[in-house]
Nucleic acid binder design. Structure first.
Length: 406
DNA sequence: TGATACGTGGAA
DNA sequence: TTCCACGTATCA
């Protein structure tokens, strides 16, 4: 991982590209406004936006085409291939994006840890989340998640708005196959989200999109549909909400902020990788078949970083909690014995692909252990050590602990 | 029922 | 302290 400077950095490229092309219209927080400040005030703006998006898409398409073919050795990442296939299958959600998503699944994003260079190395990992870097605002602005979903953003012009709603509504269904959120969900969101391009809704974010798959840091605020500084939510959010696993998605984007009814210009800070974590969790799980998708956050309610715990309960959360309690209620007496689950927000949890080279991967059959690089930070700690205080996921930089909403 | 992964105890 | 193997919980 250290030495990965030479890799192509999608984020950078995209971000720069976006900044150049779309900056005018949306990077400033004010542009996202709530009151429909203008974003969609006129038809012209929209047309302009569309144009920008087209450009953006073209660029990304080219990028993937080139990088995937050149640098990726899919054979080394069977799971990636699998993922790609799933993504393709999930295409219905974002038809235009499906293809790209598939590519993404196998794409080696540069810039992040192992991903950097060419993915040929067996140890290459696949991150589940967007880059944490501040520069990476989020990608997918899903309107409905927007705190004050303004008409402006919500314009029908966005092809995805519909699908987004559907997915969110699907709730526990977990986005079709994603039900468990892990498998389907993860792929779905994780990747989908990552490609803002396809969604077209991603305007504004310079990079956002590109990174969807990396988790470098979580800071991206991406998780769980939390919005980025610019007030946009990520596609991931959708996934989250779908799975219902993510508190962030549902809570924050939908009811939480919406309920608050914050006036335009008001800055709301969210702690930790809350939303992100959750959503991430789901995505992270996807790769493994996602058995435990959702509950991660809930389980950690006591000690975990799951940000959502601090947020007002959402229907999704509540449901999750309920299910959780129900499942564990019987074990109330044996609570201590219950297996802990992945937090879903830490770096390892966000990884979607097994390294294939660690002892755990090599001895999967006999070792029964998850890839060492995917081993949840929380689980590495002694049980009960945390305390119930909300704390940021270990891997999340303090500076990235907050997410801003406008 | 199979796959995945957490918990634990022993060995290095 | 880390690694490894096994038992077993959990989920599809």
């Amino acid at each position: 991982m250290s030495g990965m400077t030479s890799g192509v950095c999608v984020d950078s490229d995209l971000s720069s590209m976006l900044q150049r092309s779309s900056a005018p219209s949306h990077h400033h927080p004010n542009h996202h406004g709530y009151g429909g400040q203008g974003q969609v005030s006129g038809l012209a703006p929209m047309l302009d936006y569309t144009t920008e998006m087209d450009r953006y898409r073209s660029s990304i398409a080219s990028f993937y085409k080139t990088n995937v073919n050149m640098n990726m050795n899919v054979t080394n990442f069977p799971q990636s291939a699998k993922l790609a296939a799933r993504l393709a299958a999930a295409a219905p959600i974002f038809p235009p994006t499906a293809a790209r998503l598939g590519a993404m699944a196998t794409t080696p994003w540069g810039c992040h840890d192992n991903m950097n260079m060419n993915m040929n190395h067996p140890a290459a990992m696949f991150w589940g989340r967007p880059k944490p870097v501040a520069a990476t605002p989020t990608h997918h602005p899903h309107h409905h998640h927007h705190p004050s979903a303004t008409p402006g953003h919500m314009t029908s012009s966005h092809p995805h708005s519909t699908s987004m709603h559907q997915s969110s509504s699907s709730g526990s269904g977990g986005g079709g196959g994603g039900g468990s959120s892990d498998g389907g969900g993860a792929e779905k969101h994780g990747h989908t989200a990552s490609l803002p391009v396809s969604q077209g809704t991603a305007h504004h974010h310079a990079m956002a999109s590109s990174n969807g798959n990396f988790l470098p840091g979580y800071s991206g605020g991406t998780d769980c549909g939390v919005m980025n500084k610019q007030g946009h939510t990520h596609a991931d959010m959708i996934g989250l909400s779908e799975g219902g696993s993510c508190n962030g998605g549902g809570v924050m984007g939908g009811s939480f902020l919406g309920g608050l009814g914050l006036p335009p210009g008001v800055i709301v800070m969210a702690m930790g990788s809350a939303g992100g974590g959750i959503s991430d969790a789901s995505s992270a799980f996807q790769m493994t078949g996602g058995q435990r998708a959702l509950t991660d956050c809930q389980q950690h309610a006591n000690s975990s970083p799951c940000p959502s715990s601090s947020s007002p309960p959402s229907s999704g959360v509540t449901a999750a909690a309920v299910s959780l309690s129900s499942s564990s209620s019987s074990s109330s007496g044996t609570v201590a014995k219950r297996k802990r689950k992945r937090c879903g927000v830490c770096g390892p949890c966000r990884r979607l692909i097994n390294c294939g080279v660690c002892s755990s991967c090599r001895n999967r059959k006999t070792g029964h252990q998850i890839c060492k690089f995917r081993k949840c930070e929380e689980l590495k700690k002694k049980p009960g050590g945390g305390g119930g205080v909300l704390e940021r996921p270990p891997s999340v930089p303090a500076s990235e602990a907050f997410r801003w909403f406008f």
